[in-house]
Design a protein around this nucleic acid. Structure first.
Length: 503
RNA sequence: GACCCAUUAGCUCAGGAGGUAGAGCACUUGACUUUUAAUCAAGGUGUCCGGCGUUCGAAUCGCCGAUGGGUCACCA
């Protein structure tokens, strides 16, 4: 932007710039245009009248009607005094037919010098070729941007995953499925907003920079505020601020936003990702289950046209109702161990050992239950399944179960063996919450750097009083992966986190 | 973090018993007024990821490193 280097503009490579032959050809073409006063970069606007898609879908009405389209040249076939090319715009591709009689000698000769990758505006009439392809017969062509680098091959596209992520702009140009994925991502997020807005939820924005990183068990990114001269944390969840808003009297709130966790990267994890959290006063986790399955099945129906989808070759049925079982039931089903019948931690650890699940010598009953679930149950949960009643040790923000204080009113949703959502009947007892935080602080001091930090102001808010509330969090990226049949989280994030290249 | 694999032309990929490299697309020139992976003729592509070592000679073998991918660990 700030580069006003004339050499770069005139196409003459600067000294340190070692321009390859392939690139030099295009720079020379640009320099020639500039010399003739036809610098495409001087053009500031152009007015297309329609998208390629509209022409293709409404050919009957548009036949022989004048249109103006704009887009990138994706292919070119020159046959003497007539040529064909395909133009890619935001909605798809359409063929143009360029003939010397329509354009005139000079303009036609110039068109022949345009390259694949150049962006042009085309004025002409809609027609169908002898071979039956709907096309635009060009009357006038305007070069709107000269591309100085060749695009990847037309047939195989861009396959190198490293390059695809680093140069997503190229990926989007040459790989149509990638465009589709990100269009669906946008539709999913819009669908969620529509769903919640129509049910009276208020969308809010809470801080990304936190003084204490709370609401989840994760290592935070640390940054520094210069004026205040304090370290701050990038948020690891939106939970604690949203609950403050329930205290403040908003009874239904949600936030869709970026969360940052300083942890490993793999096909399911990116250091920054998008979550939605919503909170509804006077509701509990059963209401959150109803909402979750209705929301996700509605999204599938509205966006994909079916509640039965395929993920990586497996059929997933999102039709309601979804299976609901407690963690104790799930562990019993897949391991035969009935944790409900076990009272002591000693006995629980013995059962875990028998089942081949490694737990620490000090593991509690709840920790054993959680370990058995993670190691023996999760991999079986392909179809949508709500797992209810998590142990209190791993649920510091969820309300204790009345009939069993070792457990909480919490569920997680699993689809394709992956955690998709997490929800509680929110803990609103400030005294209990403070004790839970203190336990987390003890764990933190014992070396667990993912334990919660004490948040005194949050305790203060609960002391002011939060009504009974149901809360739900959904990982948007994983949901988009499911609904777009994407293998890796990096395929649903436009610009995934990458290591810088050291060249 | 550990282990395995990959990295060759702008792109997709071959090849290489150690003797400085190929195809297709793309590109250049010419022919062609309904092609569509257009066709036909001719032509040029390169830090073979980087560094060091072995060797008369390394893109090929060895070591170190970079980046990416995979598996595992971590991620309640």
């Amino acid at each position: 932007m700030a580069n006003t280097n004339d050499d770069a503009i005139t196409g003459i490579p600067t000294q340190e710039e070692d321009v390859k032959e392939l690139l030099k050809v295009r720079r020379d073409k640009l320099a020639k245009l500039q010399k003739e006063g036809k610098n495409p970069f001087h053009i500031t606007r152009f007015n297309p009248t329609c998208y390629s898609q509209q022409i293709l879908e409404n050919f009957e009405e548009m036949e022989e009607k004048p249109v103006v389209i704009a887009g990138r040249i994706m292919s070119k076939r020159i046959m003497g005094k007539a040529s064909f090319a395909h133009i890619l715009d935001a909605k798809g591709q359409i063929q143009i037919y360029v003939q010397i009689n329509e354009l005139g000698q000079e303009a036609y000769d110039e068109f022949k010098t345009y390259d694949i990758g150049d962006i042009i505006g085309v004025e002409g009439a809609v027609f169908k070729t002898h071979k039956g392809e709907i096309s635009v017969r060009a009357k006038k062509i305007t070069l709107l941007c000269k591309s100085l680098q060749p695009l990847p091959e037309k047939w195989h596209g861009l396959k190198d995953v490293d390059l695809r992520y680093r140069q997503r702009y190229v990926d989007l140009i040459v790989n149509p499925d990638v465009r589709r994925t990100f269009v669906i991502r946008s539709q999913i997020i819009r669908g969620i907003r529509n769903y919640l807005d129509s049910r009276g939820f208020l969308e809010v924005e809470t801080p990304v920079l936190h003084n204490t990183a709370g609401g989840a068990a994760a290592r935070p990114f640390i940054t520094h505020h210069n004026t205040l001269d304090i370290d701050m944390y990038m948020r690891i969840a939106t939970e604690l601020h949203l609950k403050r808003l329930i205290v403040g009297g908003f009874d239904k709130v949600y936030e869709i936003g970026r969360i940052f966790r300083n942890e490993g990267m793999d096909i399911k994890h990116n250091p920054e990702f998008t979550s939605i959290e919503l909170y509804q006063a006077y509701a509990d986790y059963h209401d959150m289950m109803d909402l979750t399955e209705d929301l996700i099945s509605t999204l599938a129906r509205d966006i994909l046209g079916s509640e039965v989808i395929t993920y990586q070759g497996e059929e997933i049925n999102l039709s309601r109702p979804w299976t609901r079982m407690t963690m104790v039931e799930a562990v019993k089903k897949y391991t035969g161990i009935d944790m409900a019948a076990i009272d002591s931690a000693d006995q629980a650890r013995a059962e875990a050992k028998k089942a081949g699940v490694d737990v620490g010598v000090k593991a509690t009953w709840g920790e054993v239950l959680n370990a058995l679930f993670e190691e023996k149950v999760e991999d079986n949960l392909v179809q949508p399944t709500f797992i209810m009643d998590y142990p209190i040790e791993v649920s510091p923000l969820a309300k204790k179960k009345l009939d069993d204080p070792r457990l909480t009113y919490r569920f997680e949703l699993f689809i394709t063996r992956r955690e998709m959502a997490n929800a509680f009947s929110e803990l609103n007892d400030p005294i209990d919450q403070k004790e839970r935080f203190l336990e987390q602080v003890r764990q933190r001091e014992a070396g667990n750097d993912e334990a919660e930090m004490m948040d005194e102001d949050f305790i203060n808010a609960l002391e002011i009083g939060m009504p009974p509330t149901g809360g739900l969090g959904i990982g948007i990226d994983r949901l988009v992966m499911l609904l777009t049949d994407s293998y890796s989280i990096r395929d649903v994030i436009l610009f995934p986190t990458m290591k810088p290249r050291e060249d």
